[in-house]
Design a protein around this nucleic acid. Structure first.
Lengths: 333, 333
DNA sequence: CTGTTAGCGCCTTCAC
DNA sequence: GTGAAGGCGCTAACAG
């Protein structure tokens, strides 16, 4: 592999001059620039980013640490991140934590050792330790999707889960449902907690009680078994609120297997829409989160902070959620 | 940020000794190891991977260059790659090309400058130039999903598109369909071409002619408009072969909008299954590719080559495709 | 078992 | 406008 010195020798200049041509900084005569560029072509020279980064303390790499790229919600977020990063000349290293605090720590450590310029973090478990670790290395972080407990010490870009859940529950109530069960994600994850809070607030405002409050995981299996639990109870609620897309699909499978029709026998609403490219007949009434925008915005925020363009105090950006009424909900008879 | 020298000073040893402790190589007295480890904890020392890589010529980073992470097929492949990489202590940088040769070149160049240890490439357009570029840098590549023209100079891990398409078409024929149209992806992409070939071979063996052969993109929109074209023709075929998952969904939407029932009025088969976690009632008869295995296997192959464990001559690994018969196909009346 | 020397490839700093 | 010196943090190669 030719180095900057080989180019310099061939062009008859000093290595630093080649460096200046490559990075397009400092004053260079058009003529020397030409000569250097010719030498670069000649040798098929490629700069070694490692050496550059070691010296310049900038890697142009961002870490994206999320729970599971297999969930289309996160896929879409990741695409937003990628596009924003790419536009600004950054590359993205992706890590899956599968909601494991251990994996999060392991990945984070690896990313910091790789000297990433910034971290986009969807915190698994208690994020305190993770964020402290990142801060100790003076690396900017933006937290994605989830609220942080206590005082804000980092930028957060998330969606209005509480408001979305409130509106979604209100929709069910406005359709005449008085007995609404919630199949929630895990307690302690802010999106779960916020959706629960929005659900509770809507019920309270309407003077209703929760028909059933069940906690599980953000998975298909969990949705299936939570729904089964609800269906086993008597009296059966008339509507189901699913805490995310996988729970919703699991619940729908349970309903199908129990030979219950949606929405005739049970109305169902979910959180997170599925990409239109995957669904022939969109059916589920959902609170749709702007996943792509969230990833894109978070990345822009992070890059702004890297460039020193951001305000000193951390920002919390909360994106609105859209209710999309489809055919999984009907008036209660 | 403390460096290896700070740790060495505190522990009263030479930097190289610290290095040996960190990397767990060479002989070290348990006692010095202890002292070094205490110093590391004390200073919250983190090795700088850039410097290490610059010296050792290993980055433990792989590039995954694919078309679009938003397609669940690629998402699943990516997860397979991630898991295999993670198990072997590698990180993955993900790049989307959107089938653009230009983007592919740009990303590839960036990845090589970053000194990735290996490249997993889903080639967009003509891969010759891309592969030459990678080879020029002496970086191992594994090509994913797509056949390469001409002599094999790199490892390839892909699925048996031709065989899958053959079996899928045979299934339609065995159901009595004699007029089968194909909505293909772009010409020149081997997966497209192979599926077309399998389709043609099955027809030929049965002494049938293709009802309609249409080329488009691997997108929802393309599937929709190709299907519309087919439906406008008279006589209408009795079955549709969709070149990938997005084309299939687009076609199904077109059929729905034309008020045609599947499978009563038209049988439909597709390539690529959708993850079960996304679908309540799997409906489409498909040729299902082992996406996760493909990503996993390709990564293992790449890492084996990095470690010098692989055979000298490039391998082509072809994974079998499974036909899953569901409810989008019916006997021709 | 531990240390010394040198250098990976580049860019920061300062000189001219 | 260009160059020389030095060092970013680490480890390969060689001693002892």
């Amino acid at each position: 592999m030719p180095t900057i010195r080989d180019v310099a020798r061939l062009a008859g200049v000093a290595p630093i001059t080649v460096s200046r041509v490559i990075n397009n900084n400092g004053y260079i005569t058009e003529e020397t620039r030409q000569r250097v560029n010719i030498a670069i072509k000649e040798l098929e020279y490629m700069p070694n980013t490692l050496a550059r980064s070691l010296r310049s303390h900038k890697t142009h790499m961002l870490a994206l640490i999320l729970t599971d790229i297999t969930n289309p919600f996160w896929t879409t977020v990741a695409r937003g991140v990628q596009d924003a990063a790419s536009d600004a000349g950054f590359n993205v290293i992706l890590c899956n934590t599968d909601e494991s605090e251990f994996e999060q720590g392991r990945n984070l450590k690896a990313m910091l050792e790789k000297q990433v310029d910034g971290v986009l973090l969807v915190p698994a478990g208690n994020p305190k330790e993770a964020i402290d670790l990142i801060h100790a290395q003076d690396v900017p972080v933006v937290v994605l999707d989830r609220r942080l407990p206590g005082n804000l010490t980092v930028d957060v870009v998330r969606c209005d889960s509480e408001g979305g859940a409130f509106a979604l529950t209100q929709l069910l109530i406005s359709l005449g449902h008085h007995s609404i069960a919630i199949l929630s994600g895990p307690q302690g994850i802010s999106t779960s907690d916020d959706r629960m809070a929005g659900y509770q607030r809507a019920l309270k405002e309407a003077g209703l009680d929760a028909a059933a409050v069940l906690y599980g995981e953000f998975t298909l299996e969990s949705g299936y078994s939570l729904a089964q639990t609800v269906l086993a109870a008597a009296p059966r609620p008339s509507a189901l609120f699913a805490g995310n897309n996988f729970i919703a699909i699991g619940a729908l499978k349970a309903l199908r297997d129990a030979a219950l029709r949606v929405p005739e026998d049970m109305s169902v609403v979910g959180f997170d829409d599925l990409p239109q490219a995957l669904i022939v007949d969109p059916f589920l009434t959902v609170a749709s989160q702007p996943a792509y925008s969230m990833g894109h915005k978070a990345t822009e925020t992070l890059i702004a902070r890297l460039s020193g363009l951001a305000s000193e105090t951390p920002q919390e950006i909360v994106l609105p959620i859209q209710i999309i009424q489809r055919h999984s909900t009907a008036k209660f008879q």
